[in-house]
């Protein structure tokens, strides 16, 4: 799943190069130039992909860091 998430990030970068839209002057929903609407979609897709990243590719070694750092701070405060 982790590799799928990183694959989706690469896919976003590829989809960002939307050469096929460059000459299209159509208005989506009657007001949004198509290239703007397409890239608004890229922004939303980026949020979805990064949500998946926090679910399936989140580093697992950070809990220990947080815990040990908190303990260090606590012991410093006590002393």
């Amino acid at each position: 799943m982790k590799y799928l998430v990183w694959g989706l990030v690469v896919l976003l970068v590829v989809l960002h190069q939307d050469l096929w839209n460059w000459d299209n002057d159509r208005l989506v929903f009657g007001f949004m130039p198509v290239t703007l609407a397409y890239h608004a979609g890229i922004s939303i897709a980026a949020s979805v992909v990064w949500f998946l990243a926090t679910k399936f590719a989140w580093p697992s070694d950070l809990e220990g860091v947080t815990k040990s750092a908190s303990e260090t701070e606590h012991s410093e405060a006590v002393s």
């Binding site: 703007l36 890239h39 890229i42 922004s43």
Partner: peptide, 12 residues
């Protein structure tokens, strides 16, 4: 096109 140049790429 300015949105594609910087905004959507920044989102990624």
């Amino acid at each position: 096109g300015v949105y594609a140049m910087l905004a959507s790429s920044s989102g990624i």
